[in-house]
Amino acid sequence: MSTGRPSAEGRSTDWATVLEEMEGEVLAAEESLTAGRTEDIAAWGRRTADWTPPQHLGQLPMDLRERAARLLQHQLSVAEELAERILQSRQQRDLAARMSYARTRPAAAFVDRAM
């Protein structure tokens, strides 16, 4: 009987646990967005490892497929928001860099034509 916990090799022992772990990651990413923690948001954006289904568990059971589909939609929604926030952050950073390194603007010169 499966305990639903990661095994000694660090692998989850059932699909329900795998989905719980993935849901936890999505909720953590969502919390980072809600709290506006820019460092955490940037860290989520730097993640490069793609998730691959655990081969040792076989196919996803039919009774978990709807849950997995909802999780996928939630993941896609959070990923889209992360991408938007990262893009906004980069745009703000680039604008700030241009403003701080821009040449000083010439002072306005007024000519008195009444003379």
Rank of each mutant, 00 (worst) to 15 (best):
M1A: 11
M1S: 07
S2V: 09
S2L: 08
R5C: 13
R5S: 11
P6L: 08
A8R: 10
A8Q: 13
R11W: 02
T13A: 06
A16D: 02
T17E: 01
L19E: 04
E21Q: 12
M22E: 03
E23P: 00
E23N: 07
E25R: 05
V26A: 06
V26F: 03
V26L: 03
L27E: 00
L27V: 10
A28I: 00
A28H: 09
E31R: 14
S32R: 02
S32C: 06
T34I: 12
T34C: 09
T34L: 12
A35E: 13
G36E: 07
T38H: 12
T38N: 10
E39C: 05
D40W: 03
A42W: 01
A43E: 07
G45H: 02
R46N: 11
R47E: 09
R47I: 12
T48C: 11
A49R: 14
W51R: 04
W51V: 09
P53R: 08
Q55I: 11
G58K: 05
L60F: 03
L60D: 04
D63C: 09
R67S: 04
A69K: 07
A69T: 06
R70A: 04
L71H: 04
Q73V: 14
H74R: 01
Q75H: 09
Q75E: 09
S77T: 15
E81L: 02
E81T: 08
Q92N: 10
R93S: 05
L95Q: 11
L95K: 10
A96Q: 14
R98D: 09
M99Q: 12
M99W: 09
M99T: 07
S100W: 11
A102G: 09
T104E: 15
T104R: 15
R105S: 13
A109Y: 13
F110L: 14
V111T: 10
D112N: 14
D112F: 11
A114R: 15
A114L: 15
